[in-house]
């Protein structure tokens, strides 16, 4: 079954629970400068004399036609046939950062050995019937994971997935 991550921007407040849940799941060592795979931000912008706020939580979007997969010269990145998440095996990673250059969302990171690491959608958890750590934590029902069928039925309002797909097609 293919899965889709989506963020309802009407509900997200940028609290950071998803980000910390991600750090807990992936043992992110922030004290050594490691960054979480999922980050939150608050954007505050002037718009026609008013101020507007938007809150977003971003990690790997697990793009349908993922640019990082095409960019990697070593074949480290690939799709999981079951979940459709963009996963990786960095054994052969040469640390060239091509994937990071190709990714519009800043998802790939590099560990102390210089090898690429990124959000794998909690692939093994999902295959075991569990939710991704970030989705499980989200206290405001903003971050969700849908199966393809569920997604079609739910038509999530103000979801980020659709917007991103449109942007990718334009590129």
């Amino acid at each position: 079954m293919k899965y889709i991550f989506d963020l309802n921007t009407e509900n997200c407040v940028g609290c950071g629970a998803c980000s910390v849940a991600c750090m807990d799941q992936n043992d992110t060592d922030t004290e050594r400068g490691e960054k979480p795979f999922r980050v939150v931000s608050t954007l505050e912008q002037g718009y026609r004399g008013e101020t507007r706020w938007s809150y977003i939580s971003v990690a790997c979007m697990h793009c349908e036609d993922a640019p990082c997969i095409k960019a990697c010269p070593c074949g480290c990145l690939f799709k999981d046939e079951e979940t459709n998440f963009t996963i990786y095996d960095n054994t052969n990673c040469i640390g060239c950062h091509s994937c990071a250059m190709a990714c519009p969302f800043g998802a790939p990171r590099f560990n102390e050995e210089g090898k690429m690491v990124k959000c794998d959608g909690c692939n093994d958890r999902v295959k075991a019937g569990l939710k991704p750590a970030c989705v499980k934590a989200c206290p405001f029902d903003a971050l969700k994971m849908y199966s393809e069928d569920e997604y079609k039925q739910a038509h999530p309002a103000r979801g980020i997935h659709d917007i991103v797909q449109q942007l990718l097609r334009q590129e």
Partner: peptide, 8 residues
């Protein structure tokens, strides 16, 4: 669910 503090 958990809040950001509880997740810590």
């Amino acid at each position: 669910h958990l809040c950001v503090r509880g997740a810590s």
